[in-house]
Structures are given as structure tokens and as C-alpha cells.
Amino acid sequence: MLSVKGLPFFLLVVLVSSQSDDIPDKVQTLLTLLYAVNIEVRGLLDVTNSRCPCLDDVTLIGNETFQDVQCYETKVEVFRNDLRATITFVEGLKNDSSTACPERTGSLLVASCDSPVVSEVDPNGAVQNGFEATTNISGWTVGPFTNDSFEYDYFSNNPFVLRCRLIPDGPEVILANSSVAPLAPSASGTGIAYFAPTNEIYVAITHPDNAASNGIYAFNRTSFPNVRLVFPYSGETGSIYISGSYVYMLSNQTVLRIQDGETAWSTVVVWSLPPIAFAVQDSGNLLFCEDSGALYLYEPDGAIYRQLKQPVAGESCSSIAVGPDGSTIYYAVQGSNMIEVFNTSAPTAPPSTLEIATDSPCPILLLDPRNP
């Protein structure tokens, strides 16, 4: 507990606040002011020592012997002692700030298909407050972002609705729903990704009653509702991922890809079991997780498979996400509140773990795009 005698320092500090939102910067601003006050107090003691020194040693405070407690110089000495204790305390705050209260950028966000609540885990594994969407999230992606905020876009089904929200504390708008042409009432979203070159949200959609209308649709973010079919696909659509100029899509056991200007999908790999989720590294390598709980890395050049996680009885993958460094892989388990973290640069190393606030039967991962 800080001494009441220390209050004048904080009254001084609030008059000159740091313009930065970074906690270490704010604490350093506080320390700079306290150091300046300390210098002035030392100067004051130099003057009192020559003009009005206390004559008798009568009081022991801590490890220091002070003069007469009613003496002016003694009062200044006690004030200086409190100040130095305050400086030591604030220096500790600065040293602890990066771990005790880390930046929230770069956090892992965890949604659930059965709840609108979104959990948030910061880069050091601490659970943050999170936030709540308007409805349950069936799939989501990160849109445009700045250092201060980012947009996420998500869809829900039955009926299909695509929404956009700004984080933190921004408004949420509906970009389109299944009543907007060329969609049909039966539309069901299966995958979502942000396509930066056209500033559109791509959503893979299946129409159970009309396979000819299946494919990837582009949703305009700035003029809505405005929907167009960009990549038709006659089969069953699945989750999608954008890497480079290619749009990748999972369809049952097959991962396909296509890019602007092409009219036919090309096969990247056919898996032995239908993957639950997949992701693509910048190198073009693919990551898969499946119902057995296994996690694999596939290198198309050479058709090489690497197993990052072995199957676990009773455990099934729910979602995976690739960190901004390209090698960190986040793996969510169905019905669990634990997130496993793998590193493809060290594929034999055991994973670390992060813990979210509550269990979810279907956790869906997303990364805050702002690097920590």
C-alpha cells in the first residue's frame, strides 16, 4: 500500500499524462516525473542542511536515523524516504507490465458454434474479457485492420446471415443474408475468408436443393447488400483459405484451389480421411487436422507428409490457425478449453498449451492480425 504521503506525487503526475496507450510508456512517463521530483527534493535538503539543520538524533525510521521529528529538515527527509519507496515500487510496475498486463494485440480469439460469446487469450496465455457477437458464429475471418482496431466478419446459418463488426467496441452491420440474390433461402455457409485485392468477403456456400448454385460468393464490404458468384463449384463446398493469389477450398477429402482468371478448380491433395479443418502457410504447405485428433503438415513439393500430432483416443480436432510468423500452429479440440500450440520449425518438440475461459463443443479459432 502506498503511503498517503506519496499522494502529492500522483497529483502532480496526472497533470502531465503520457500520449501513448502503451503501458510501459505510461509507466516510464510516471517514473521520469518521479525522478525529477526526487532531484528537486535532494536540492531542497542541500539548502535545509546549510540553513536550518536539525541538531539532535531522536527518531529511527527504517534503517535511517532522522533528526527531531518536528524539525523542518526531518519532515523533508521523511518525504524523500516515501518518494524513494514509491520510485522503487513504480520501477517494479514497469518491469512487470509486459507479462502482468501484456498488449492485447496478437491475441487468439475463440468462438463457438453454440454461443455468441468469444473468448480471448493474450500472447502470454492470460484469458482476457473477450466480447459477445450478435449470434452464434459458424465461421469467421479477419477483415481490414490498423494498429488500433480490426474488423472481423462472420456468418451464421439457418438462415444464412453475414455480419461485419469492428473491434474494439465498433458497430456491427449485416452485409447480406439468404434473401439477397443470387443466394437462395437454402443457402448454407461452409467457409469464409477476406480477399484483400478487391476488399470483399469470400464465403463458400452450398445450396442443398440446387448444387448448380454452389460455389464461392463475394460480398461487398462498402456497398451492401451486393453479392456475386465468383467461383462456381458443382460439388459440396467446405472451409476456405486464401494464400497469395489462390483461394483454397476443402471439399470432403479433397483440397482444391483456384485463382482469379481461372474457370476450373485444380486438385492440391486428396486426403485419406475428410479433414475437419485446414490452413495454408505462405510457402504453400498445407496443414490438416482430422477426426482422429491427428495434425499433419503436407508439402506439395515432393508430396511429403509430416505428422505434428498423433491421433488421441476420444479427441477430435475442431479448428486450426496459423500464427503471423507462419510456423506457429494453434490447434483446438472439440469439447475442450485447451488450445495446443505447435511449431512447424520444431516439429518434434512437444506443444505448449493455452487455456480459454470455458469448454466448447466446437471452438473456432481466429487471430488478432495486429502483431504483439
Rank of each mutant, 00 (worst) to 15 (best):
Q19R: 03
T29K: 10
V27A: 03
D21R: 10
R51T: 14
G62E: 11
V37F: 08
N38G: 11
V47G: 04
S20G: 01
L30D: 00
L30F: 00
V47W: 05
N49F: 08
I23P: 03
I23Q: 04
V58L: 14
T29I: 00
S17I: 09
T59I: 10
P53Q: 04
Q28D: 13
L60S: 10
V41D: 02
S20Q: 04
Q19V: 12
D46Q: 11
L44T: 10
D57V: 12
E40Y: 01
P53M: 01
L33N: 03
I61R: 11
V58R: 12
V37C: 09
Y35M: 07
L34V: 04
P24M: 00
V47I: 15
D46Y: 09
I39W: 00
V16K: 03
V41G: 02
D57L: 10
N38D: 14
S50C: 06
L60F: 12
P24R: 07
S20W: 06
D56N: 08
L15V: 06
Q28F: 02
Q19C: 06
L55M: 11
L15P: 00
I61V: 15
V27D: 01
S20K: 05
V41F: 12
S17P: 14
L30M: 13
L30W: 01
I39R: 11
I39Y: 07
I23W: 01
V47E: 10
S18I: 04
S50M: 12
N38F: 00
L60N: 07
T32D: 15
I61E: 13
L15G: 06
C52S: 12
L15E: 14
T59S: 09
D25C: 07
R42W: 15
